[in-house]
């Protein structure tokens, strides 16, 4: 599989020009990361670890000061590549209210296509498809501000998939949602990845969400410090704790029991695995 998103020795600084003397804060200190086509990657890290900044480099919102970023084979530092990259790499943000532009759901979903200059008939078709994909077709003529948080996020996602992107970056899309909204959005994300082959980069603080990904990447103070399967990452309970992250409850339980000498697999991250192992233990001890 080819590398779809690729960063090499990427350095990025925010420049604060409002201060008397412009100050530079380097947020990414030479990050290298390759993401393959069709992967579902969860990007973890506490606030200020640089994970959002990194994501914004991949769709040419941020431009690296040094190092290189390639998105779908295009050099993100070149001006002429900006729009083609943004068509292929969409981005969903945390606050559902602040990414909906239009006063009617379907008009909002059409926004990107209108900007791209797609033919009206084709827009209609793609908008309807996109709304059906996220299961919001029945709401196409509703006003966005009357929808629930989860519905708004699905509309925002529909606005991106109407562009037929190959990759979607999601920056804490579930942080402001209730459990129901969170489940809706996660279901949509997984469906996009599994059924439509969209590459997903999901930034989240919810470990149960990250556990559903194919791969987990952990950022800390501007560097990537861990990269592996969810099992490999979450089994390192102490290391994650030390950088202010959590693990799923079942992983924590297994970790505590292992410390007491109970023979369990450290790489237990789902409820099913945990139940199965505990039942085995009880059978053995009988």
């Amino acid at each position: 599989m080819e590398n779809f998103l690729s960063a090499k020795d990427l350095r990025f600084s925010y420049i604060n020009e409002s201060a008397e003397e412009p100050t530079e804060t380097e947020v990414l200190h030479g990050v290298s990361l390759d993401i393959k086509k069709g992967e579902f990657v969860a990007l973890l890290g506490h606030n200020g670890s640089g994970k959002s900044t990194l994501a914004k480099c991949f769709n040419a919102i941020n431009t690296a000061q040094s190092g290189s970023v390639f998105s779908c084979g295009l050099d993100a530092s070149k001006e002429e590549n900006v729009l083609p990259i943004r068509q292929r790499v969409g981005m969903v943000f945390q606050n559902p209210d602040n990414q909906i532009v239009a006063t009617i759901v379907e008009e909002d979903v059409a926004f990107a296509l209108e900007n791209m200059g797609v033919e009206p008939k084709e827009i209609r078709r793609r908008v309807d498809d996109a709304l059906k994909t996220v299961d919001m077709y029945d709401y196409r003529e509703h006003a966005p501000h009357k929808l629930s948080g989860g519905q708004k996020q699905r509309v925002a996602i529909a606005g991106l998939i109407a562009m037929r992107p190959e990759c979607i970056l999601l920056d804490e899309p579930t942080a402001m949602l209730d459990p129901k909204g969170r489940a809706e959005v996660m279901k949509t994300i997984k469906m996009l990845n599994k059924e439509m082959g969209v590459t997903i980069v999901l930034i989240t603080h919810y470990m149960e969400e990250a556990a559903q990904a194919d791969r987990v990447v952990v950022a800390d103070s501007g560097n990537i410090i861990m990269d592996g399967t969810p099992k490999q990452i979450f089994s390192q309970v102490e290391r994650l704790r030390s950088i202010g992250l959590d693990v799923p409850q079942v992983t924590e339980l297994v970790y505590l029991l292992r410390k007491e000498g109970v023979d369990l697999d450290a790489e237990t991250i789902t409820e099913d695995e945990c139940v199965e192992q505990l039942l085995n233990i009880f059978k053995k001890s009988n």
Binding site: H46, N47, Q94, A175, H205, G244, L245, D246
Partner: peptide, 9 residues
Amino acid sequence: ASGLDPKGR
């Protein structure tokens, strides 16, 4: 605690 990272929460 809504919207905070695990440590902040």
